[in-house]
Design a protein around this nucleic acid. Structure first.
Length: 657
RNA sequence: GCUGUUGUAGCUCAGUGGUAGAGCACUCCCUUGGUAAGGGAGAGGUCGAGAGUUCAAUCCUCUCCAACAGCACCA
């Protein structure tokens, strides 16, 4: 007999090989009926699986959060069956559960379109209504291979071949249809329920490899309850409303146009925010960094020296004089090839190298708001989030190995403090370790990873567990390990922004050195770090995070003084002047429009503070303050309102002083 | 870069093998109105670019460019 322990601590004895379903039935028929799966010793499993040893068991009902992935996974199988029923000859591949849903990749000559969804969903509902039980069989490799070969399922055959020899091949049947799958599944197809929806179609490479065939992927999502699905769809709509490309257009912050794919035209208001953000960052750096500026174009040879040309020339812009392009074979034309800088580090090494540096000078921290250009693949471009020309809040620290740990911690503290100033307090720091393709000795990698592991532990400990840490195995840069800082925005999306990278390679390549206390030449270590990462992208994140309702200090337009009647025009001008005197970005709206119209317009334009002035206010030196997002207003003396707003408009770092 | 979709006025979008329309925005006029759209008039487009088919192309075909979604990539 084996002992089975229940969540309440009670245990009972059963014959070995008893299934979860048997146990549930032995307790009560209704329990057996509402249970869709079990958690056996902490792992989700089929309810029909035999239990062969002493175990802890938990029954999982359909509404159990742990059942959600099963519902989605089962839905993926239903989707696959539906597609093969509607389009015989379509090959199935894989259909995993992902965040917020599932997908299934098919091989089909004609790709799907969203117009196919109603028919597929209808067929899915039929299959679900049939409520066939999921049954599992373990097949031999040969049986599985010949079965899928006979059916013409070449991709499945490849999957069978890829499964390690010591693993069972599991086949899940749902009525007549079956799929190779590691499971687990719920007891029957009907448990999927009706709260599912197909979301979109897309191409996707077989096995995620761009040299392999393109498959046709259908994304879907499923929930236990319709309310959950509705809520999810609402959240997607909310994210769409916050799309920085849309808000950027509506608020007149920036634009893109065809002649400049991936490069930003910053309008006055957007650039004001850019400047405000940059000014803030400069203040944060002032005490510890030296700001520098390195050239935009440098001879190709320098990029060969740095290694960038070898590693990344596919993603770099190269420039020549126009004459060289027009007369490529003319020896009298200057044919010299330059590259637009994709990174600031080589430039900073040149600055470091200029003149002898002593150990007394270290650490040297060179910062630059460096405009860089990278030839990103066209399909990667996305608003401000992925562009070809952007500004990094970059810095390179030249120091000794002994100083590394302190420098990493210092950077960490600055990054967390900056994020916190924007209200980002949920931060994850991950250490990316050595990748397969890399340069430098294993000795240096060992050293750098050891230091960074220590720092990572410190970060976690210092934050009292608030900052989550982790490791990304093999994800480091080719020249060294790195920390990646990921912040969570107001609607729960994660953005990787900051990074700290240790680099033994570049100083070596450029033969950078400092004079040690004993007079010998020593190689400095370089630390690359960025906080916002790309200023453009960080602004994009801020736009979406705040949904355009910026804190006053960042808002491009802080105050609009709107008149009710033109008798208040002179007074409005005076208030605007006073506001500007108080350091506020303010303007008057004297247009011949009703106040309701002006209120609506400035509300839609997301102006943080609207000061309405009419005859009464003009006569008594008052303003009627209406804040963005509020439907009421407060009448108060103009001076008082402006003092309040000016205080609120102080950047967080200045407010601390 | 790959797969698919899209490209018509500043924005959002209709539309047709016979060279175009709406709403909002814009300009002007009337209106001076107390917290989310007052009324009227007007101006504005080489229908993404190029080539082809046709008597005739914004519409059909091809190529290119760009955008969007996903994949791949992201020093």
């Amino acid at each position: 007999m084996i002992s089975v322990t229940f969540p309440d601590g009670a245990s009972r004895h059963f014959a070995p090989g008893v299934s979860g379903l048997d146990i549930a039935k032995s307790i009560s028929p209704s329990l057996a009926k509402r249970t869709v799966a079990m958690v056996l010793d902490g792992a989700l499993a089929d309810l029909a699986d035999p239990i062969v040893k002493d175990s802890k068991i938990e029954f999982v009902g359909r509404e159990d959060p742990r059942a959600l992935e099963l519902i989605r996974h089962d839905a993926a199988h239903v989707l696959a069956e539906a597609v093969q029923a509607l389009w015989p000859g379509t090959q199935v591949t894989i259909g995993p559960v992902i965040d917020n849903g599932f997908y299934y990749d098919f091989y089909k000559n004609e790709p799907f379109t969203p117009e196919d969804f109603p028919a597929i969903e209808k067929k899915m509902r039929e299959i679900i209504a049939r409520d066939a039980p999921f049954t599992k069989e373990v097949w031999s490799r040969d049986k599985a291979k010949s079965f899928f070969e006979t059916k013409g399922e070449a991709f499945k055959v490849e999957l069978v071949d890829a499964i390690p020899a010591d693993q069972d091949l599991k086949i899940y049947k749902q009525g007549d249809w079956l799929d190779l799958c590691r499971g687990p599944h719920m007891t029957s197809v009907g448990k999927v329920g009706s709260a599912f929806k197909l979301m979109k179609v897309a191409g996707a490479y077989w096995r995620g490899d761009s040299t392999k065939p393109m498959l046709s992927r259908i994304y879907g999502t499923a929930f236990a309850k319709q309310e959950d699905l509705d809520l999810y769809i609402k959240q997607i709509e909310e994210a769409e409303k916050r799309d920085h490309r849309k808000i950027g257009r509506e608020m007149d912050l920036f634009h893109f146009q065809e002649e400049g794919p991936g490069v930003v035209f910053w309008h006055a208001k957007g650039w004001r925010m850019f400047q405000e953000l940059t000014a803030y960052m400069r203040r944060r750096l002032a005490a510890d960094y030296d700001e520098v500026n390195a050239p935009q174009i440098l001879d190709k040879s320098l990029w060969e020296m740095s290694g960038h040309w070898g590693w990344y020339s596919d993603n770099m812009f190269a420039v020549k004089s126009a004459t060289a392009f027009l007369r490529p074979n003319d020896p009298d034309a200057d044919q010299r090839l330059f590259a637009l800088k994709p990174m600031n580090c080589p430039g900073h090494v040149q600055i470091f190298k200029h003149g002898l540096k002593s150990y007394r000078d270290l650490p040297i921290r060179l910062a630059e708001f460096g405009a860089v250009h990278r030839y990103e693949p066209s399909g990667a471009l996305h608003g401000l989030m992925r562009v070809r020309g952007f500004t990094q809040d970059d810095a390179h620290i030249f120091c000794t190995e002994e100083q590394l740990e302190t420098e990493c911690m210092m950077i960490n503290d600055l990054i967390l403090s900056v994020y916190s100033d924007f209200g980002f307090d949920e931060i994850v720091v991950k250490l990316s370790t050595r990748p397969e393709k890399r340069v430098g000795s294993d000795e240096n990698w060992d050293l750098a990873e050891a230091i960074m592991t220590r720092v990572l532990d410190k970060i976690a400990a210092q934050s009292g567990g608030r900052i989550k840490t982790g490791i990304n195995e093999g994800e480091g840069a080719f020249y060294g390990p790195k920390f990646e800082y990921t912040l969570r925005d107001a609607i729960g999306r994660d953005w990787q922004c900051g990074t700290t990278q240790i680099d033994f390679n570049l100083p070596e390549r450029f033969d950078a050195f400092y004079v040690a206390p004993d007079g010998s030449k020593k190689r400095p270590v370089m630390v690359h770090r960025a906080i916002c990462g790309s200023m453009e992208r960080f602004l994009g994140i801020l736009i979406e995070n705040y949904a355009g309702h910026f804190p006053l200090w960042l808002a491009p337009e802080q105050v609009v003084v709107a008149t009710i009647t033109n008798e208040a025009d002179d007074y409005a001008h005076k208030v605007v002047e006073q506001a500007m005197g108080a350091g506020l970005r303010a303007r008057a709206d004297l247009r011949n429009e009703k106040i309701t119209y002006k209120v609506r317009e400035h509300s839609l334009a997301k102006v943080p503070a609207l000061l309405v002035v009419g005859r009464k206010e003009a006569a008594e030196g008052l303003v009627s303050v209406r804040r963005l997002g509020s439907n009421d207003q407060t009448v108060m003396p103009a001076a008082q309102a402006l003092a309040m707003l000016a205080k609120e408009a102080t950047a967080p770092d200045l407010a601390r002083r």
